[in-house]
Each structure stands twice: as structure tokens, then as C-alpha cells.
């Protein structure tokens, strides 16, 4: 079956086509989501949202990029939406604490708790610090750094997903590394 035929079956909402899509993509989509949000449950929820979005928007898919690139783009956007929502909730909690509300501040994170099955216990603290630093980067830098260094995507794949040229991706990567270095230095200076 060609990709076009497969997309047509997805458009017709055939259960067997969605079964195959999930078989082929569940691991890849989950890997992208957990690269942005280091909590297994949160990442699985986001991955489910990704497949629901594919289901609802497949008729809008123009086939200008491959199906996999389009799915990775949705995965990235859904993960960013989740982080934005959590960060907004955190800010709202902070405002409530200033205004004397009883609601406790969500001091935790933009993820429920750090729970990444691929990280060994002795690296947990450092990983958590790194994820916090990544969250403080501007969004474009955050996306490029996460896709490249955590999700192991090539510059070409990142360029397709983000619809930016390879030189732009390289430039964003350079700035992300530089900013992260500074953020981590500041963090460890304050810790001492």
C-alpha cells in the first residue's frame, strides 16, 4: 500500500488504518513528547492528543511534507501547548499566593513530577536541573535543542519539522547551547 492510499484510508476513518498508524508511530511520538515533558504519564497523555489531532485534522493534511514529518510537527506543537498551559498555571498559582489565596502554589514544574524511564537514578537530579534550564530558553531554541539533543533528530529532520532552513537550525542550536551554559553556570553559582 502506498502512502497516498494509506492517507486515504486514514481520511475514511478506517479503524485498521489507525491501528497500523499507532503501531508504526506510538514509540516515535511518545519519544518526542517525553523529550519535551520528562514524565511518562504526561507524555502518554500528550501522545494520545497527537493521535486525536491526526484523526480530526487528516483531511487538512496537504501532503506538502511526509506523513511522519507532519505527525512530528503535531507532537512538537502539542508538547509546547502542554508546557505553556503548565507554565501559565504556575504563574496563576503564584499570583494567587500574592493575593493571599488559600490555594497552594504549584511549585513543582511544568511536568507532574520527574519520571523519565530512560534516566538512571544517579542522573535524576542533574537531568531535572537540565530540563528546568531548557524550559527557560526561548521557544525556538528550546524546540531545536530538544529535538536534536534529546530526541536525536538530525538537522534535516528538525528543519522539516520546524519549517526553518538548516542554517537557521544551526544558529538556534548554537544560541541554545550558549544560553544553557550560562543558565547552568548561574544555577550552580547560586547553589554554592
Amino acid at each position: 500500500m502506498t502512502e497516498n492510499e494509506f492517507i486515504e484510508r486514514l481520511r475514511n476513518r478506517r479503524a485498521d488504518a489507525y491501528g497500523k498508524l499507532i503501531d508504526d508511530f506510538q514509540q516515535k511520538v511518545f519519544a518526542t513528547c517525553i523529550s519535551f515533558v520528562p514524565n511518562k504519564e504526561d507524555a502518554e497523555d500528550i501522545a494520545q492528543e497527537v493521535f486525536i489531532e491526526v484523526f480530526n485534522s487528516i483531511h487538512k493534511f496537504k501532503e506538502k511534507s511526509s506523513l511522519s514529518t507532519w505527525i512530528y510537527r503535531i507532537s512538537t506543537n502539542k508538547s509546547l501547548e502542554f508546557i505553556r498551559r503548565r507554565n501559565a498555571k504556575k504563574r496563576f498559582g503564584f499570583m494567587q499566593s500574592i493575593l493571599g489565596s488559600e490555594t497552594p502554589v504549584d511549585r513543582s514544574n511544568y511536568f507532574t513530577e520527574f519520571n523519565h524511564p530512560g534516566i538512571i537514578l544517579e542522573n535524576k537530579e542533574k537531568s531535572e536541573t537540565l530540563f528546568h534550564a531548557i524550559n527557560q530558553l526561548p521557544e525556538a531554541q528550546k524546540v531545536v535543542f530538544t529535538l536534536c539533543k534529546i530526541d536525536d533528530k538530525s538537522y534535516q529532520e528538525i528543519s522539516d519539522i520546524t519549517q526553518k532552513s538548516i542554517p537557521s537550525v544551526e544558529s538556534l542550536m548554537f544560541r541554545a547551547k550558549k544560553n544553557l551554559q550560562k543558565l547552568l553556570e548561574d544555577f550552580y553559582k547560586n547553589e554554592n
Binding site: 501522545a47 530512560g118 534516566i119 537531568s127
Partner: peptide, 10 residues
Amino acid sequence: VLEAMDKASV
């Protein structure tokens, strides 16, 4: 730490 990170399974 990034180098030591394993793939997580769904």
C-alpha cells in the same frame, strides 16, 4: 547526562 539517557518505552 544527555549521552547517558536511554529510550523510554510507551
